[in-house]
Design a protein around this nucleic acid. Sequence first.
DNA 1: CAATCTATTGACAACGTTGTCAATAAAATC
DNA 2: GATTTTATTGACAACGTTGTCAATAGATTG
Lengths: 341, 341
Amino acid sequence: MGTTIKDVARMAGCSIKTVSRVINNEPHVTQELRKKVQAAIRALGYSPNISARRLARNKAYMVCILLYPGFDPPAAGLLPRVLDIGYDENYDILFQSYFPALSRSRNKLVELIGGRRIDGFVSTPPCDADGFVADLLTTYKVPLVQIDPFDRSGSTPYVAGDDFQGARAMTEYLIGLGHRRIAFLAGARNLRSSVERLAGYRAALAAHAIPVEERLIEPSEFTFDGGYTAARLLLARQPAPDAIFAGHDTAAYGALFAAQEGGWQVPRQLSVCGFNDLTLSRYIWPGLTTVHQPADRMLEQAVRLLIDLLNGKPLEQREHILASRLEIRGSTAARGGIAAG
Amino acid sequence: MGTTIKDVARMAGCSIKTVSRVINNEPHVTQELRKKVQAAIRALGYSPNISARRLARNKAYMVCILLYPGFDPPAAGLLPRVLDIGYDENYDILFQSYFPALSRSRNKLVELIGGRRIDGFVSTPPCDADGFVADLLTTYKVPLVQIDPFDRSGSTPYVAGDDFQGARAMTEYLIGLGHRRIAFLAGARNLRSSVERLAGYRAALAAHAIPVEERLIEPSEFTFDGGYTAARLLLARQPAPDAIFAGHDTAAYGALFAAQEGGWQVPRQLSVCGFNDLTLSRYIWPGLTTVHQPADRMLEQAVRLLIDLLNGKPLEQREHILASRLEIRGSTAARGGIAAG
DNA sequence: CAATCTATTGACAACGTTGTCAATAAAATC
DNA sequence: GATTTTATTGACAACGTTGTCAATAGATTG
């Protein structure tokens, strides 16, 4: 440890520049000398000092992923894959909490950019609901890739899921099961995905000429408690809904809990479904029917896109929409069992 | 952007060294000059280049947390708190997948150390089941804090939960409910916590003079599938157990699923409980009775310990054992309802 | 065989900080 | 008032890489 390029040069009997060439696979070194240098590197257990390289190259080789402070724990299951990409591409990946409109968050961001500590950013929703990050990074000319941005105008590349189609497909699936009184748990209005999902729900009902009953659309946060509270409210009213479609799995967990606690048989008396297909959704009983959203692949692709950009590869397309698909499990069933209720 | 200490010095009309003194809150600068420099810093939006500082100080200000590749997604809920510590102490926190005995993992580790890229490490189980990391870091004199290490000898500081007492208390709670045929889902033998929990289970039975029935101890992995398979096996045998104590919540989810799928009424006919209190355990229905293990605080404390060490603070004690407590929810109940089965 | 071109190699500056130490100015002591 | 001490300031080297460019050796051409 503490061995530098000088030690290697001394041992191999050449200049430091030649060693540098070998390290970076540059041409203009004879096979013979190259071998000798490589042997010296191995013998000394040398690896280049990253800080020095970063300074000399004026590049941090570091990418930052902005996360909303209370971000969904299960969503972190995607970490390992992202880390692997970083490993392969020789970038370090830094996670950072970011809460919009918090001066602490903003200062940190400015510090990271100004200190040339980060080459590029990935923002996850709803971190940049107000567009501050996108604006700041644009003026500083620091690359950014957004995940599911609220505002899709502008020129920032982004990755998103197909929320509208997913919600529409799920609603049609429920209609196909015979359900007519389908409640919808909508999320925050500053979440693009939330807005899109609600639109998909409405579109499906409209396509089947089922009038939208506004009382069945319950504004709730995409959290367990939000789903729980909203479901209790909905189930207490007469007539009760046939099905509850939560805009997010976490809210669906809350709804499921409330239903089972209230003695409802799921899915015999009530169908429940969600959106996102979090890891957990397969584990609870009955398994949650949901729209599978490839969250891991979204983050993965965002990081890959960013790194390609940093490596000088030109951007081929600005929008990257990943398809979603229905994941049918045990929490939904055909209407009819309901006669018993 | 691109502004350096030189620009600030020029604007403030002083040397770069003086600016450096102001940045680092060093003495020997008059109030007057200090103000002038600070004004220049603000005016230029300057923040010091981190790579240069790291090189000059020969310190990376970077800490690495080694994670087992398939680590439990919910466990990542602790991320935000850890990130905040890093922020406050001005260290970057880097996550790295580490799979023992994989040359790729080992090489990366050597690279991180040799390149002086990381000042210190935190290892989470079962990354270092074979002790390779601890040995390597010891020879390189790179600080390490372990979480729940398998081998507690040696001199490496570590943080762990009180697995033995936790499992013992849970078992005694079940005994208190009247259960006698208590099955235990044991985990991998290279996990310290797994071994300790089994020992706690045995100790509780022994204390109440209940003979340990080896057929009730089912070796299973601490995963959903492991718990599912083991529970199906146990429930198919005659006589069936009164209760299933899974050594980990994830396995408990599997057991719960298997039981409910098989038509068992939980907790009327069968009590199920787990260990760890993952975020999910509150969300499933019935809520999972479990041993609360402060996983977030464990990681938090490990990181804090490491940073203190790196800041030159002497280590006060090598062992940090955090207490656990029972978290009673709906998945366990007194025996007696069982008469119906 | 001289002249040109090409491939290899290394000396040295640069990157933007911090650390060392000497120079100066101001204050305190005799 | 001369001398010592103390506080302030800056010139310059160092950290370990990479980039520029000139020097050399070898191959190719006329």
